[in-house]
Write a protein that binds this DNA or RNA. Structure first.
Lengths: 343, 343
DNA sequence: GAAAAAACTTTACGCGCGTAAATTTTTGAC
DNA sequence: GTCAAAAATTTACGCGCGTAAAGTTTTTTC
């Protein structure tokens, strides 16, 4: 026998000296067979490089070992980081992650969900686009596939939502900025793609009123996911109008802040918390590049690990626990203030 | 019949009034059936949301419609951008992209290839880690799966290699820098992960000699994929030693340059091509973030579209054309010099 | 060491679809 | 309208594996 090519589980069972149903059992759960049997199979496994045909396996199993991961924009390092964390946890649990990016578009998001449905995943971890999402498509999807939302919530959709507590982000930055200098004005996109942006604005207004200051919101125009350029162009427009050239600016997110800082630099403005600075800039997200901006960016960090860990735990509880009748879990993790040079 | 749930192609064929083999033919290629037949199937398709079971399909087809895309580090926006471009082309060709990141590690790269083999992809577009790659694993993989390498070449592996012409990148930046000011010193990692880095150093030395200047290479220490931090720490170390504080610095890649610029800013050094600047900094890659550095970064841009397009075309030629006896295609696309404020 | 329990083997069926061969129907050209 | 070509239908088998049932062997328990 040795030397032949192994074409299927039948062949492999033959060379390992174990019956095919037992070999099948082994591949589903190596601990479900006797130790001596396991050893014989594993001995055969490193003589031949057989592995079960994944398509035949998934055709017959009631449930695949696939976990879908959908993010709105993978080129945004924030999402690629959280996707990476989630991926690692999914693999550790013995499942196969399937990573899809919606590239900022509704059509691609819908295609991704459509594609996932035909893959019959055991569950899906889904960060929706937000405002641009097609709610009815998502609702239908969630009815068919166990889904946990993360990052952006959509009311009532999915079995749970795990995200960051936007109010915590803004409360901490506003409190710090007010305590350490002039109260901040808020810098954001006029029509943000993401529901978190709205929560941040609302939280800003509430926090400012709590601190006894008048909230001032500066909205800039621009569509799409090129936030840095929108921030840069918006900052230049503001400077041209004589606005935001001094005091403190709190950006809705780091990518806008990166653009804002670039514009400030181009104008020769000095940003920072030192005496000789023209203005302070802070933001939210702790984007991977925010420590390399000039100056480095004071921001509020997501708890990546907590969000990723909780989301993954949730989906596996759903998968293994079956139907849960408990109320929809909506957990928000607080931010961690990161003080750097910009404010 | 209407109202029933469609469980398989048999059911669907029944409600559409067409025989199952013909319906099967339709799903393999809608143009292979008569127009009237196509209309009847498509009429049924929007009354029921049937789609063929992808696992049963792939089990029986000699070839799946999957195209693997493996990149070394998806959190690097350079790779997420090129992955996005490739993905779009693959989808347009009617195939399903499967995106995997090696997260900078050999083990993950091997796992990715292993995982892909069991998915029986029609072809794979593979950007290897480079120095950290397990060459023997990759060689074995390429024997079993039609593979086109991109970004980093590995001698003789895969059916083709499509990448950027590192010499073109460096020639253009060196020529420009020499023409417009002091000749550059080269700033790079001591043990770069990527073979492109070595080609760039070699090209730098050759270009400098051509220009009649002595090449000076400054190597910084650091492991892993946190290039920005390695660049920042390396720059600070250089400044501490009184090096690179004036003149012109050419970084091996933009991510190092981002760290270098951050360090320069922290030192209060003025970077740029204006009279009052302390030094000039340029680099290579046109990283998505490079236009938002302070100052914006003069760099050499990859031709994303050309590389992605050629790589995708190559893999489909392999898939559809069968065995090619022609010599291994190694195409390198030249860079485009991007002049910004830093040099 | 006997009985009970656990693990394994044998046999067999079905999953949903690709695909081949033989037959029947439809189409298009004259 | 005829006839050849094209397309559809009927019938049938096989892909590789999950899984159930019944029988056999091995292990555990006291």
């Amino acid at each position: 026998m040795p030397g032949d090519t192994i074409r299927n589980m039948e062949d492999f069972a033959a060379v390992s000296g174990i019956s095919r149903p037992t070999v099948s059992k082994y591949f589903n759960n190596p601990d479900s067979v006797r130790a001596t049997t396991r050893e014989r199979i594993e001995a055969a496994l490193d003589r031949y490089d057989y592995r079960p045909n994944i398509y035949a396996v998934n055709q017959n199993r009631q449930q695949t070992k696939n976990i879908g991961i959908v993010v709105p924009f993978l080129s945004d390092p924030f999402f690629s980081e959280i996707a990476r964390t989630i991926e690692a946890l999914v693999i550790a649990a013995g499942y196969r992650p399937i990573l899809l990016s919606s590239h900022g578009g509704q059509e691609q998001e819908n295609d991704n969900l459509d594609s996932l449905r035909s893959l019959k995943p055991a569950g899906v971890l889904f960060a929706p686009l937000g405002r641009a999402s097609d709610k009815s498509v998502i609702e239908t999807f969630c009815k068919h596939v166990p889904t946990v939302l993360f990052d952006s919530n959509l009311d009532g959709m999915g079995e749970a939502f795990i995200g960051s507590d936007n109010a915590s982000f803004v409360d901490q930055t506003v409190e710090y900025l007010c305590r350490s200098g002039e109260p901040p004005r808020f810098f954001e996109m006029r029509t943000p793609a993401n529901p978190n942006a709205n929560k941040r604005r609302t939280a800003y207004i509430a926090a400012m009123e709590r601190e006894g200051h008048e909230p001032i919101v500066h909205k800039v125009t621009g569509e799409g996911w090129g936030f840095e350029e929108i921030g840069r162009a918006g900052a230049h427009a503001a400077f041209d109008a004589g606005q935001l050239t001094s005091g403190t600016v709190l950006c809705s997110n780091d990518r806008l802040a990166i653009g804002f800082l670039a514009a400030a630099y181009e104008r020769g403005m000095r940003v920072g918390r030192t005496e000789d600075s023209d203005l302070r800039v802070a933001s939210h997200d702790d984007h991977p590049f925010s420590r390399f901006t000039c100056p480095s960016l004071t921001t509020a960090a997501h708890d990546y690990d907590a969000v990723a860990g909780h989301a993954v735990r949730s989906i596996f509880e759903l998968i293994e626990g079956g139907e849960d009748t408990s109320p929809r879990d909506e957990t928000l993790y607080p931010a961690r203030l990161i003080l750097r040079a910009s404010a």
